[in-house]
Computed example of a mutant assay.
Amino acid sequence: MLSQKTRYAIRAMQHLADHYGKGPVQLADIAEVQKIPPKFLTVILSELARSGLVASQRGKDGGYWLGVPPIDISYGDLIRIMRGSLALVPCASRYAHETCQNCVEEENCRTRALMLQVRDKTAHLLDSINLSDNVEADAYLLAAE
C-alpha cells in the first residue's frame, strides 16, 4: 500500500504539473484544492525540493513549481523518492534489499520469486507514465467497465 504521505505527494505533484509554466503556486492553494494538511504538505514539498523535482521561492509572490518538466517525472520515480522502493516485500527491493526474517533461503523462496515479478511489472508500468500524461479517473473507470 502507498502511504498517505506518498499519495499526498502524488496529488501535489499532479497539481504542480497542471500549473507547469504558469509561475509559482501557493502552498495554501495546493493544500486547499488537494485536501492536504498544510503542515504535512510543507514537509512533503521540502523533501521533493531536496530531490530536485520541486523548486520554490519565498515571499509574497513565491510558491512552488516543478523543478523539471512533467514529461521527465515518472510516477515510478516519484514513488521511489517518497517510499524508497516499489517492492511489496523487503527481499524483492532493488535498492533497499533486506533479507526477510523467519523465511526460507531467498533462492528457494517462491513468494520472493513472485514478488520480484510483481515489482518488475509494477516498475515497468509506473516508469512508463509521466506527470505530463493524461491520467483521468473518469476515463479509466469507463474503460474498466
Rank of each mutant, 00 (worst) to 15 (best):
Y8H: 15
R11A: 15
R119F: 14
S56N: 13
V54Y: 06
M115P: 01
V89A: 02
N108S: 11
M13F: 05
L48A: 04
D18F: 09
I36V: 11
I71D: 12
R11E: 12
P69Q: 01
A96C: 07
A12E: 03
L86F: 06
K60L: 09
S132M: 08
G62V: 08
R80I: 06
R119E: 14
R112N: 04
V33M: 06
Y64E: 04
A113T: 07
G84C: 04
L27A: 11
D120E: 15
I30F: 07
K22L: 05
R83F: 02
Y95R: 15
R50S: 15
C103Y: 05
Q34R: 14
L78P: 10
C109L: 02
L125G: 00
S85V: 02
L86Q: 03
G67I: 13
S128A: 13
C103V: 00
S132V: 03
R94D: 12
Q57C: 04
E47M: 05
R83W: 02
V68A: 14
E106I: 05
I71H: 04
A31K: 09
C109I: 02
A9F: 01
Q34V: 10
L41T: 08
I36M: 06
G21H: 10
I30S: 07
G84L: 05
A113V: 01
P24K: 13
L131P: 11
R112I: 08
I44G: 02
K22R: 15
V118R: 02
G76R: 08
R58M: 12
K121A: 14
G21R: 10
V89K: 09
R50W: 08
E105Q: 13
R83Q: 15
C109Q: 06
M82I: 01
Q57S: 08
H19N: 15
A49G: 06
Y8S: 10
L16R: 08
Y95I: 14
L88E: 11
D120H: 02
S132I: 07
T42R: 13
G63K: 08
G52K: 15
R94N: 09
V68I: 15
E98I: 06
E47C: 03
A17E: 12
A92F: 00
E106W: 00
Q101A: 12
K39V: 11
C100G: 07
Q34I: 03
S128K: 08
E106F: 00
E107C: 08
R110V: 07
V33Y: 06
L116H: 05
R50G: 12
P90L: 10
V89P: 06
T122C: 09
D120V: 01
Y64G: 05
A49F: 01
S85W: 01
C109M: 03
T122M: 11
Q26I: 00
L86H: 06
V54R: 06
R50P: 03
I73Q: 07
H97W: 14
L66Y: 12
L41M: 09
N102F: 14
I81P: 05
G76L: 09
P37F: 03
A49K: 13
S56F: 14
H15C: 11
T99D: 15
H124L: 10
P70N: 14
A17N: 12
Q14P: 01
A49V: 04
K121G: 00
V43D: 10
